[in-house]
Design a protein around this nucleic acid. Structure first.
Lengths: 141, 141
DNA sequence: CTTGACTCTAGACCTAGATCAAAGGTCTAG
DNA sequence: CTAGACCTTTGATCTAGGTCTAGAGTCAAG
């Protein structure tokens, strides 16, 4: 199926997974990667599985998962059967968070857009709606 | 027009502007707030202008401006006439950045949504499209 | 054997935007 | 006058996710 045991140095793994060497050691410290075998010299010795796991982490990060959530996903993905349901739930949670963030940014964008449209781009600062919006005291509780 | 000179302690200003005392001193260090007058005892003495400026900062922060950008906006807003054009430009830059971020998040969301829809929520991890998407090696340069 | 590239560890440092602690001085109500 | 709230400074700490340094050891090629 696959080359079962192709030992690699940390540098080779880093190159193949597209991450920095320091990042690999950092992930190991943080429990996102298992401790690898060591050569007699103390060098870390990795196989293909490490590259796959690093790519997993990178993709999950691209989807906006935090390292803590990824640690959780990795644990779940190792759990045959019972993990799948939980993984789907995590993905749904992540989706909800992203949607909320999009809604928030959209609100901010619309507000900013209105201010820009109303600003002539010249004249007195007092007549600039952007500055007025920032400076006006509205909510004196 | 306004109460011309109502000296306040830092605590009073913090309360009225809705920020922490430490944050005010931090902004002062960072050049976002001018150094206030001092009483004989060394206590900082603020007036209404400080409250307005803090609210300005808070609103700009809500619009996603960084403190560095806000420092820039404050300098521009003090520049009668010539500042308005630059302020509008900064706002447009900010708008473009927000739109880009929304587009990015939307892409991520759509990808995640597809994975979730395709995941049965049970069964073997090998059949979970979420885990497969994260784990599959696609790009072996 | 030498050279240069690579790796090891422990620990410091980075961004951004605060937040907190320690040790002490000041102000105000009662 | 005293308790307690408030203020001062310097400097450390926090989150998140790394990045970098120093000093030492190792590996592969020529």
């Amino acid at each position: 199926m696959n080359t079962p045991h192709t030992p690699m140095t940390i540098g080779a793994v880093a190159k193949r997974a597209g991450v920095a060497i320091d990042t690999i050691r950092y992930y190991e410290r943080e429990g996102l990667l298992p401790e690898p075998l060591r050569r007699a010299s103390g060098y870390r010795s990795y196989d293909e599985g490490a590259v796959r796991q690093l790519r997993f982490i990178r993709r999950a990060k691209d989807l906006g998962f935090t390292l803590e959530e990824i640690r959780d996903l990795l644990a779940l993905s190792a759990d045959r059967h019972r993990g799948v349901k939980a993984v789907k739930q995590r993905a749904q949670d992540r989706l909800a968070a992203i949607n909320e963030r999009i809604a928030e940014l959209t609100r901010v964008r619309d507000g900013l857009e209105q201010l820009i449209d109303a600003c002539p781009g010249h004249g007195e600062p007092d007549e600039c709606p952007i500055l007025r919006a920032l400076a006006d005291q509205e909510g004196e509780a």
